[in-house]
């Protein structure tokens, strides 16, 4: 599904290298987790994959089902099935959440040569998905993320994901800021979307989330590299011992 090879990324504005050769392969239907200390480059990796400005790829490649991601515009990557749940979702004043969703859904359908979803079908779909995530009608009408609590923003990201039905989902610290109940809701939302043709890359600091969303593979990222890859136990090890031993081992 997702294949990243030797990916090196610098900041565009200043001479600073953030990713220093990332290798990562996520197979179809798999759930991978990435853990790692603050500032190790996890969000940068997710931004570069989704096409944010400000980064310069100096080496390596990233493909989604064989298609070169790095060559596409952000919206083309989205239409190809890539989705990023932002660590810090963006507020868009004056644009209704529902409007935003419908515009996004139809933009992707159009890009794939499908007909637009009718207003009725769309509404039915949103309501059902929102209900699962305990997002009330009021929140659907409000402007995108404006005045949403931290946890509400995260749930809203998952709602977008559920509506867009991507095949490669990257979740950047979606668990941060969620209370215990919301964490369960979000995990259930994610688990409901798990399927053979859909893969997840879950960036998190906590084992807690991985109790709910069981990963197949866990990667540890540090200083712009994947320094260790293992099974679900690796997350437990981090939870118990921190990163010190792993970092020393990698040296």
């Amino acid at each position: 599904m997702l294949e990243i090879k030797g990916l090196k990324v610098d900041l565009e504005e200043e001479e600073k290298s953030i990713l220093k050769g990332v290798d990562l392969t996520v197979g179809a239907g798999e759930v991978h987790a990435i853990m790692g200390p603050n500032g190790s480059g996890k969000s940068t990796l997710s931004y570069v994959l989704s096409g944010k400005d400000g980064y310069e790829v100096t080496a390596g490649s990233a493909t989604l089902d064989g298609a070169d991601l790095l060559d596409m515009e952000p919206e083309e990557r989205a239409a190809a099935g890539l989705f990023l749940a932002f660590q810090y979702p963006v507020e868009i004043p004056g644009v209704g959440n529902m409007t935003f969703l419908r515009t996004a859904v139809n933009a992707q359908r159009k890009a794939r040569g499908q007909d637009e979803l009718s207003a009725g079908d769309f509404l039915k779909e949103v309501r059902a998905r929102a209900k699962d995530l305990k997002i009330d009608a009021e929140m659907l009408k409000r402007p995108v993320n404006v005045g949403f609590s931290g946890g509400e923003k995260k749930r809203n990201e998952i709602l977008q994901m559920a509506m867009l039905e991507p095949k490669m989902c990257i979740l950047d610290e979606t668990d941060s800021g969620l209370d215990v109940d919301a964490m369960k809701l979000v995990s259930e939302g994610v688990n409901a979307l798990r399927s053979e043709g859909r893969s997840f890359l879950v960036i998190t600091h906590y084992q807690r989330l991985l109790d709910h969303i069981k990963p197949d593979v866990v990667h540890i990222m540090s200083n712009g590299r994947i320094i260790k890859t293992g099974g679900p136990d690796l997350a437990l090890e981090v939870e118990n011992n921190g990163y010190a031993d792993l970092l020393a081992e990698a040296e």
């Binding site: 989705f83 644009v95 996004a104």
Partner: peptide, 29 residues
């Protein structure tokens, strides 16, 4: 805001659609 435009585009809207959406939001009232 570039972050707003990127957010829209990462959801599948092209640049002009994103600008129109953000500007229409700005004019809402």
């Amino acid at each position: 805001d570039d972050d707003q435009l990127f957010y829209c585009r990462s959801r599948g809207m092209d640049e002009e659609e994103a600008v129109a959406l953000v500007v229409n939001g700005f004019c809402k009232e």
